[in-house]
Design a protein around this nucleic acid. Sequence first.
DNA 1: ATTAACAGACCAATCAGTCTGTACATTATT
DNA 2: AATAATGTACAGACTGATTGGTCTGTTAAT
Lengths: 166, 166
Amino acid sequence: MSVKKIVDEVGTSKGGFYHYFSSKDEVLFLIHDEFITYALQKANEGFNNHESPTNKLRDIIINFVKVFDIYQAHISVFYQEQIYLPERYETMIKKKRDQFRDIIIETIQLGVESGEFRKELHPVITGMSLLGMVNWIYKWYRKDGEKSIEEIARYFEDIIIHAVIK
Amino acid sequence: MSVKKIVDEVGTSKGGFYHYFSSKDEVLFLIHDEFITYALQKANEGFNNHESPTNKLRDIIINFVKVFDIYQAHISVFYQEQIYLPERYETMIKKKRDQFRDIIIETIQLGVESGEFRKELHPVITGMSLLGMVNWIYKWYRKDGEKSIEEIARYFEDIIIHAVIK
DNA sequence: ATTAACAGACCAATCAGTCTGTACATTATT
DNA sequence: AATAATGTACAGACTGATTGGTCTGTTAAT
C-alpha cells in the first residue's frame, strides 16, 4: 500500500501526510505499537489478577482473543507489512512481543510446577502453540461472521485448558 | 526480494532467469504450489490410512509439522510474499489450502460423531486453531534449534490430542 | 547453420519523500 | 478596528532510486 494510495483513500494529500508523520515507517510503527502495547498490558493484568496458573491462563487467553476483534485493522497491517519495518522500529516492537510471549510461557511453567497442568508439557513449545493458534485468528475472523468474538474466545479457552490441564 | 538480488545471489543473470521463467510471479507460484501439493497429499494419506479419527488426526498432525522442516525455505517465501501473488495464481493455491483445511475439519467432525472426541468441540474453530498452531511453527522453528522436528511433532500431537479427546 | 543458454544494458512504471505554493487562522502592531 | 506578520495545515508537482520485464547481443553445443 503506497503513500499515494493511502492519502487518496483518506481524502488528503502527501503534504498532509508528511505534515503529521515523518515517514511511512513511523506510521507503520505507531500501528504496531498501539495494539501490542494494549495486548501486553492485558496479559500483564491477567497474569497478576489471579493466584492459580489456570485462572491466569484463562484470563490471558480470553483477552488475547478479544484483541483480534478490537484491533482487527491494525493487525491486518501488522502481518502484511511486518517485514518492511526498519530495524530500529522492529527492535522496539520485538521487545514487547517477547515480553508477551514470556508471560505465556511463564504461566504454563507455573502451572506445570504447581501440578495444575500436565507435567509432560514443554512450556516453550506449548506456549508457542498457544501463540500460534490465537494469532492465526487474524486469518479467518470476520466481525460479521457466524460466531461472536466472545464465543470464539470461550472455545479457545476450552481447547487450551483441556490441552494443558491434568 | 528483487529479481536482480535473486539472480545475483544465485550467480546468474536476468537473461538466465527469464529464459526459464515467464515472470517473478510464476516462480512465487511454483514455490507455493510445491509445498502445498506435498502437504495436501500427506494429509490425504493420513486421512485415508486410518479407521479411527484419532489415528487419522495423529497422522495428519505429525506429517503437517514435518512439512515445516522439509520446506522451511519455501514456507518463508510463502508467508512473506503471499499478498503479492496475482489473483489467477492465488486462486489455484487457495483451492489446495481450502482442501487441506477441510480434511482437518472433517477429521474433527468424524471424531466428534464417533464419540472419540469431546462433543462440545466446534469442528471449524477447533480446526482453525489446529491450523494456526502448526502454521505458526514457521515463525520460530530453526533446523539447528534445541528440539528436532520429530520431537516438536510429538509435542504437538500430544497437545492436540489432549485438547480434543474425551 | 541453427538453436539453446545465458549476459547485462536499457526502459517504463512506481515508489517514498521533498519542495514550493497557498488558504486560513492567530497574534502583534498601529 | 484595521492592518500587518507569523504560523499552521494542507495541496500536488516533482525527483531520484528501485523495480519487473525486454531486447540485443554473445557463447557454445548440436
